[in-house]
Design a protein around this nucleic acid. Structure first.
Lengths: 231, 231
DNA sequence: CGGCTACTTGACATCTATCAACCGGGGTGG
DNA sequence: CCACCCCGGTTGATAGATGTCAAGTAGCCG
């Protein structure tokens, strides 16, 4: 993962260098260890975060503990951009993480004089919305094999935007996280990965997978291999 | 459903009357009949729409026909606000509908001189994002009873913002749409509604339901009635 | 009245969850 | 250095919720 400043990561082309410098001044940078909480659902949202290094799980939970991971955030992405004054989700570090914290009010002040920032936030939010809508379709209508295969392909392509990735796709998160992202159990994720490996679509390695053979195609078309066309 | 102009519906407090008038000039108003398509996934997104009357289903579909309804749009909401230049979802009228069409390029031009519009769009998109995230949690982790009960309560509360609603909650969409919104089959939706009726949580009437008894509470707590705490 | 569509209900199949055992690597401490 | 333990992961047997297939009903429009 790169070590650049958050604003340069995400805002690269949107801000000119002057604006960028001003924006950067608002941020407080710090680091967190594996498993640490950045913010929690329901908490007062007086801060907004930018992720500059590492991977973060963003999730919502029900009172009885059922959990849905909304996204695995990557460097350059915003966290906790709620419009309400309470966070609507929780964010936890997966492995070591570096974030920059912005005060909500300062960010708002800055945005008054910077149409670029508002435009940037709109673009980011719209992208998140599309991702979430795709996720909704996948979770709602996909089989276990489709979910896992699609997850691997999508995750790889998102990683490509921040890191050079070879054939080996790292999976820093545990099986339970993948399960909670895909609406499955960790056992089903494990079984499905094994099945994909038996079909030579992937190879399972410690903390990752190798997307072998026909790569994307073979994976997404895992569906075509299935006997039934469900739903 | 009210007959007001779209911009007044949604932009009410954001624009001053001057801006409102200018904005209104950009719109072309027209109507569609039940089942008509407003735009389709993959189509060139040269237009953006505002819904001024009626209900619209916004959905994504897989090549084999599996369909996920993302939201039932209500008057005052935007449709087709993509950042890409192709629509990422399809929109169809449920019953009679009135929309205003904005040219994408004109809207963009207008937004250059109107920070208010960009802020408005950001707010709207952020709200949509939160709705979709909630939907993700519900679909992924909810039982059939929770899904249906939550849908009825949420739908009612969204309706309250545009119409005076009594105890009777109208359901203009067919069972299949509800099923595709909740990630169920129409049979399961039907059975679940029947079960809720037997428990005196609702009464099923033509084109709607009556939320009787303990209303919201009893419905959402449908979960507590179930023997198991799944997942 | 006939036929259509939306909806309901029933019997059965299937996918995934659940419960449980087992495996393997890495760290710790004797 | 080895033994142990712990945690994450895999694998197996079983069960349950929802999907599937099919029949039947009700309301609506021509």
């Amino acid at each position: 993962m790169p070590r650049a400043l958050f604003s340069a990561l995400f805002c690269g082309e949107t801000f000119d260098t002057e604006e960028l410098r001003e924006f950067q001044k608002l941020a407080v940078n710090y680091r967190l260890g594996a498993g640490e909480t950045i913010f929690s659902e329901g908490e007062l949202a007086d801060s907004v975060f930018g992720l500059s290094r590492g991977v973060v799980r963003l999730y919502k939970a029900l009172p009885d503990g059922r959990r849905q991971i909304l996204i695995f955030a990557l460097p350059g992405e915003f966290l906790g951009l709620a419009l309400a004054n309470r966070h609507s989700a929780s964010a936890e570090a997966i492995g070591e993480v570096a974030v920059c914290r912005f005060s909500r009010v300062e960010l708002r002040k800055f945005s008054q004089s910077s149409p670029n920032l508002v435009r940037l936030l709109l673009e980011f939010t719209a992208r998140q919305l599309e991702l979430t809508q795709d996720q909704l379709l996948l979770i709602s209508k996909g089989t276990a094999a489709e979910k896992v295969a699609t997850f691997l392909v999508d995750w790889r392509s998102r990683l490509l935007r921040v890191t050079a990735v070879s054939e080996r796709v790292p999976l820093p998160m545990p099986r339970q996280d993948i399960a909670d992202f895909l609406g499955l159990t960790l056992e089903t994720v494990s079984r499905t990965l094994t099945k994909l490996e038996q079909r030579n679509a992937i190879r399972i390695v410690p903390k990752g997978v190798l997307l072998t053979g026909l790569e994307q195609t073979s994976l997404v078309l895992a569906r075509a291999c299935e006997p039934h066309i469900p739903n």
